[in-house]
Amino acid sequence: MTTDHALPTPHLDVLVQGRGPALLLAHGAGGGIEGNFGLVLDDLAQDHTLVGPHYPGAGGSPAAVAPLDLDDLADRLVAAAVAAGQDSFAVLGESLGSAVAVRIATRHPTRVRALVLTAGFPTADPVLALAAQLIKSLAAAGQWDDLARLVLLSCMSPADVADLADLEPADLDAPVAQTLAAMPPGTLDHFDLVSRVDIRTDLAKVSAPTLVVVPTGDRLVLPESSYRLAAGIPGAQLIELPGAAHVLNAADRATWLRHVREFLAVLPATSA
């Protein structure tokens, strides 16, 4: 018999919004709930209760005092949902949040109604591993401007990069500054966890209905990583967002929202 693990006190800054069946949001490394899900929060909150915990060092969550642990992070997200009055939920994971979501599904299977995994990975592919190492090195050296340049470039699609061809170098200062301002203090801790994640043995244990969303223009997490997630999870559905970047723009996020709503609409009914 499968039993859920005990829950800790979450000690996380949590966004709670909306009314209806619960969606637990798991954001990416160096991001946050607004940064990953901001374009769709109001729409989803019309008929769902959104529970969006911020990882240590993001939002208003205290910074980590030790290296992040995937089991502990998964348990703390579940604890945040339960503290918000939600005993069961679908989990929407983005990038690192996809690994968190899968670990939630294997540690707390009776609570998880479904998974939506976007730009995810079972373990860091070579591109992501190199990027994580560079991000950690630059952050440790205090080279935050260069780190922001790397993040900006990595999160663009090939089409986005082509659009930069006619810009003067100075014109890039503003988007670099915006990227830097959006990175939380916990970025280094998040990417340290990215470099250590390995959920390959979890995949076959996932019993919840799963939708895997693949941005095919992703330059940070190879699309092949998402394909491996879908191949390893029994019965997983897969959709592609052609040309989409790691961080979805408004048009791609609108397409994502349509597919996610269609997926959620056919789940078994549950009480809010």
Results as ranks from 00 to 15, higher is better:
Thr2His: 11
Thr3Phe: 11
Ala6Ile: 05
Leu7His: 10
Leu7Glu: 11
Pro8Ser: 14
Pro8Ile: 01
Pro10Trp: 06
Val14Thr: 14
Leu15Trp: 03
Leu15Val: 11
Pro21Ala: 10
Ala22Gln: 10
Ala22Pro: 15
Ala22Ser: 14
Leu23Ala: 04
Ala26Gly: 07
Ala29Phe: 02
Gly30Phe: 12
Gly30Cys: 05
Gly30Ala: 07
Gly30Glu: 08
Glu34Tyr: 06
Asn36Tyr: 02
Asn36Thr: 00
Leu41Arg: 09
Ala45Gln: 08
Gln46Arg: 15
Asp47Pro: 11
Thr49Phe: 12
Val51Trp: 14
Gly57Leu: 04
Ala58Asn: 12
Gly59Leu: 09
Gly59Gln: 08
Gly60Gln: 08
Ala64His: 05
Ala66Val: 02
Ala66Gln: 09
Pro67Gln: 05
Pro67Asp: 07
Leu68Tyr: 01
Asp69Tyr: 03
Leu70Asn: 07
Leu70Gln: 04
Asp75Glu: 15
Ala81Lys: 02
Gln86Trp: 11
Phe89Ala: 10
Leu92Phe: 09
Leu92Ile: 12
Glu94Val: 11
Glu94Asn: 10
Ser95Phe: 15
Ala99Gly: 11
Arg103Ala: 09
Arg103Met: 07
Ala105Cys: 07
Thr106Leu: 04
Thr106Glu: 02
Arg107Thr: 15
His108Asp: 09
Thr110Val: 07
Arg111Trp: 01
Arg113Val: 00
Arg113Glu: 13
Ala114Asn: 03
Leu115Ile: 08
Leu115Lys: 07
Thr118Ile: 13
Gly120His: 03
Pro122Ile: 03
Pro122Ala: 11
Ala124Leu: 04
Asp125Arg: 04
Val127Gly: 01
Ala129Leu: 13
Ala129Ser: 12
Ala132Asn: 05
Ala132Trp: 02
Leu134Ala: 12
Leu134Lys: 05
Ile135Pro: 03
Lys136Leu: 15
Ala139His: 14
Leu147Lys: 02
Ala148Ile: 11
Val151Cys: 05
Leu152Arg: 07
Met156Arg: 12
Ser157Phe: 05
Ser157His: 05
Pro158Tyr: 06
Asp160Asn: 13
Val161Met: 07
Val161Asp: 00
Ala162Met: 08
Asp166Glu: 15
Leu172Gln: 03
His190Ala: 13
Phe191Lys: 00
Arg196His: 05
Arg196Ala: 07
Asp198Trp: 08
Asp198Thr: 05
Ala204Phe: 04
Ser207Val: 14
Leu211His: 08
Val213Leu: 09
Val213Glu: 11
Pro215Thr: 04
Pro215Gln: 08
Thr216Arg: 06
Thr216Leu: 12
Gly217Arg: 09
Asp218Phe: 03
Leu220His: 01
Leu222Gly: 11
Ser226Met: 03
Ala230Gln: 13
Ala231Thr: 06
Ala231Arg: 10
Ile233Arg: 03
Gly235Glu: 08
Glu240Ala: 14
Leu241Ser: 12
Pro242Leu: 01
Pro242Val: 03
Pro242Ser: 01
Ala244Pro: 10
Ala244Cys: 12
His246Arg: 04
Asn249Gln: 03
Asp252Val: 08
Asp252Tyr: 05
Asp252Phe: 06
Arg253Gly: 11
Thr255Gly: 02
Trp256Ser: 06
Leu257His: 10
Leu257Met: 10
Leu257Ser: 15
Arg258Cys: 12
Arg261Asn: 15
Arg261Lys: 14
Glu262Pro: 01
Leu264Pro: 07
Leu267Trp: 13
Leu267Gln: 12
